[in-house]
Design a protein around this nucleic acid. Structure first.
Lengths: 198, 198, 198, 198
DNA sequence: GATGAATGAGCTTTCATTCAT
DNA sequence: CATGAATGAAAGCTCATTCAT
């Protein structure tokens, strides 16, 4: 039975990967179930045995990526010693990880902004987990005296997330093959010390 | 003839406004030409006398907003005395201006990320103008000694833009009625001085 | 404008006739919108400009037939002098009229028995009108002393309607080309005098 | 072997009952093989070991009910002494029996009118047996002098069958919980003596 | 025999676009 | 110029049937 379950999981992931690829290239609305199915090597109808519909496929794909992303992030974070290092780790990891796989990056950037309310709801939780993670690290930083206490945690978090998000976005816009992990240092330096000269 | 041209322009703007409203509420793909036409008070076919198609309507709407946005931004910037003040002005203006009209904000945040290559191309120029503007202010800042020279201009720009962009995004996600212009101060403070305690 | 309205009505009837034909041959569920549209000489999508959907088409077709049926029935009934003659008129008319057009007859016999609740509701009114008509004639018959008063009106009505309905049904089952209007006499004789020998 | 055969028969009946239930509630076309299989406690594919397909299931279900119906009818008829009593027995039995089980009644009324020619053919025999039965009783009635000889047997039969059929139909339409066996008396009285006052 | 995952044909419906008026 | 009825391609989804296990 374990073999069967494994095969099922494998197929599910194949569909998810096909979906991510299709969505990242053409966007959700311009991707057809037929195309995704063909890419995944299954029949159209088979997709509906694994996902309720196209929309659930989108949400599942997003959750799939985010879960994996957050899981690996935790491993990385364990290596960092203090809150600031952990925050730097997040910046580095976010940029490095996403620049590894342009499909995945594009998918996240694009589909994160779905207007359909149902999609927003489905996507909300894993995204929120990430935000909460940053929040808690900022709080820890404040407690340990390494982060300024005169600024709202949420504002700091938005600047951090916005910075990495936009760095990825512009990378995608440029269709630059060059990885952007190397920029993590500079980005974090701005976040840390600000742009003002002293 | 001038009267005719004026009427034409007026009608064009009416269509654009209807399109922006529809796109921002339901997204590009869930908005129909028929709905937009009805909202604009014209017949379906009439739209095609003013725009090549639905996609051009999207691009035009984006350009329309951005042009207006940049135009008004220049006026504001004229009041600021030095590069840092100008950058603060941008942050403040971006947040204030967009939080005035949630529809427009949503439209910009969501539809900016269209995957269709043709849309990306059409959108690129006005967006690029904005980026260039920030870039030049950062450069000026460096020259005047107010901005750190040890960091790439592009990186600084991305952090600035990402910060305001994400602030707007999260505001939209929260569906918070409260305006966020008031957060400009804090956001800029982070950008300016960084999050690290001294 | 009248020309336009006329053309619209004409096209609507063309669609209805195509639907009746298709439904009567293959039944509602085995008929496709595409087939009906082709038969009516229009594009698939055009049907949706005239009817909300396939189901509304079914209900409209039924109502269309029944309205016409009842209208012409009234004309016929005006010629009959007393309640019994009127009832005989109904029997004769029902059999004659339906046997004129097998498509229509089959359609009525088949689709009258749709299990979908929404269809039942849509069909209910015109069917009910017919039943009520028979009821009122039976009542008149009782009042005038021509019809037995010791039997519930509804029971009599059901026997009358059932008799003609089944006569049509069996005619359809036999696929008998022979018209059955001629059987009206015998059917009514049974209804009138019963089967028992005296 | 007998045990095996018995189990097979039992399972077959279970499937038929599940089918009848599903068909009567949602109609043939809105019932899925999957639903029927689940209701019968078997796998989808198993159905195909007992029936050639969905359509054969429909025909078998109809035949199953009719066979049972006719079998029990014969028992009842044995109690009646003369042709007229036997005909009354049929009317009473038909109404009583069907009003016992609304599901079955609905199924017979609705699905009897399937347009698909193959279904019509499959259904024809058992239905015909019932018609023939009534015919022969009418003939007997004529021979024994209890039934009028001036009317075609078929016409009389159609009136009889139509009367009970419509009584059931209207009962279903009304969704009346009240059993209609009690109306048999009145219905038969109309059939026997006609509606005309003397 | 029994299973149920997989298939893929086929359906209804939507909607951007066209063009006769 | 403006209209809006007509178009028809395209898409998501269902479900009877098959067949490897």
């Amino acid at each position: 039975m374990s073999a069967k379950a494994a095969q099922k999981k494998e197929r599910q992931e194949k569909i998810l990967e096909a979906a991510i690829k299709a969505f990242s290239i053409n966007g959700y609305h311009n991707s057809t179930v037929a195309t995704i199915a063909r890419e995944a090597g299954i029949a159209d109808g088979t997709m509906y045995l694994y996902f309720k519909g196209k929309e659930e496929l989108l949400i599942s794909a997003f959750t799939f990526i985010m879960d994996n992303f957050l899981e690996k992030l935790e491993v990385k974070l364990a290596e960092a010693k203090n809150p600031l290092e952990k925050l730097k780790c997040i910046v580095t990891y976010h940029l490095t990880e996403l620049s590894k796989d342009p499909d995945r990056a594009k998918f996240l950037q694009l589909e994160l902004r779905q207007p359909a309310e149902s999609v927003r709801r489905g996507i909300a939780k894993p995204l929120s987990l990430y935000m909460r993670k940053i929040d808690s690290l900022v709080e820890e930083g404040k407690e340990s005296g390494m982060v300024r206490k005169d600024l709202p945690t949420k504002v700091i978090r938005r600047v951090i997330f916005g910075a990495v998000d936009e760095t990825i976005s512009s990378w995608i816009r440029r269709k630059d093959a060059a990885p952007i992990g190397s920029e993590a240092e500079a980005v974090f330096e701005v976040l840390l010390g600000g742009m003002a000269a002293r």
